[in-house]
Design a protein around this nucleic acid. Sequence first.
DNA 1: CAGTATCCCTAAGGATACTG
DNA 2: CAGTATCCTTAGGGATACTG
Lengths: 149, 149
Amino acid sequence: MEEGTFPAPGSCEGTDDEFDVMHWDSREDCEVRQILDRVADKWSLLVIALLERRTLRFTELKREIDGISQRMLTQTLRHLERDGLVRRTVYPVVPPRVDYDLTPLGASLHSTIKALVTWTEEHQREIAVARNRYDLQADAAPVAAGATA
Amino acid sequence: MEEGTFPAPGSCEGTDDEFDVMHWDSREDCEVRQILDRVADKWSLLVIALLERRTLRFTELKREIDGISQRMLTQTLRHLERDGLVRRTVYPVVPPRVDYDLTPLGASLHSTIKALVTWTEEHQREIAVARNRYDLQADAAPVAAGATA
DNA sequence: CAGTATCCCTAAGGATACTG
DNA sequence: CAGTATCCTTAGGGATACTG
């Protein structure tokens, strides 16, 4: 086991609700920031997305997620399990069988993540266009850019 | 400039829409995966959140986001600008002034990101509880866990 | 099958110094 | 002020080998 998990919780929940959102940005060690990082993690996103409505075994997840190593998959699953987002069920059979599925908490996160994915899918064209424009003008204009008023 | 930006675009947009979502997970070099990574990035999240409804200057952003280095802030802003999410406005004044704000595209992403942040805020208690439970039982049970049916 | 343990290497990213 | 350039450390994460 490696696992360097935070010894200092550093709570910053009930600071003040003057700003409905936007207060979570200051404290670096803030718990919300930390959870956000975990949840917005590359592999976590994929795992949660895949576990919607279907239970998957370790190998199935590994097969589905192109490019993930078993090391990262294990680590990601452990994190998600620890956070109560994913349930791990071990069957004590002779060829080991372990099932993974979303907890209600994980399922509630899923819709949010799906929204993010959907946004990305819907706007990938625009982003591609923006990138092309940016790259071209950056290439063409080594000096003088922006509001040349 | 460092910037290692992908020479191979690797499109995977119009593959098939049998699965409304859930097809974006396989191709590792998929553009959606790449955009998702950028958008779900730790610092990007914070920058976009902060730029809601207010225009900020470089130093203001740096001050607001605790723990970010100028290197990372610059890099993040450049990426977001390139993706068409953030607009950068340079005023050719003697003490340089550069303003950052969201483009319409960036603004459209903001609501999605806000949803993610809100989810995190709303469920941080549950996650904390889950973590405690996990840590305690993992500590207490070095052997035999899960469905001991 | 479902992991754990090790090794190892790349790249993310902080600190610092310099510039238009 | 708003960066850029350089250095350097750390840790994220792949590859491989071993185990219950």
